[in-house]
Amino acid sequence: MADSKPYGVLAEFDTTSGLYHACEAIRDRGFKRWDSYTPFPVHGLDGAMGLKRSKLPFIVLVMGLLGAAGGFLMQTWISVEAYPIVYSGKPMFAWQAFVPVTFECGVLFASFGAVFGMFGLNELPTFYHPCFNSERFLAVTDDKFFIAIEAADPQYDEATLKELFSELGATHVETLEA
């Protein structure tokens, strides 16, 4: 498949600081479609990459509120409409009794929002990723740090990028197949 369009350019760095400063440079040049890969979390890298704050908290809030509202309405419908039973002489619509389940439904759906929202925002599950076409990329779980810029980026130009990465101190630069 050598004639197909490449996925992008992959650059390898030996140190966190090398990667960190390279990320800053790429961020400042205004690249849009790129990512960095590290064996462990590097503090402050999100800032160096210019990442915006995650949308996840908003998803969690909306899911939590929907879950709580759904839980409350479900109990109201069951106790008042579908299967009314008098217990402890309480009214059919005993909202106090609904609070614990309402709370739990809110927490449950907020958690779903957090986990599946995180999956969605991270595009998980991803069964194939072009980075793994590189033998050297396997070291990303060991002691190497990588940046990949996608061909889909509007500023993408293979030759200039390879030169840029060398200037930024990459120890190895290669083109990734799609």
């Binding site: 402890s88 002489g89 106090q96 009794a97 609070v99 614990p100």
Partner: peptide, 12 residues
């Protein structure tokens, strides 16, 4: 606060 209220309300 709700735990206190809830148990008292329930047991009556």
């Amino acid at each position: 606060a709700f735990s206190q209220y809830f148990l008292i309300w329930y047991a009556n």
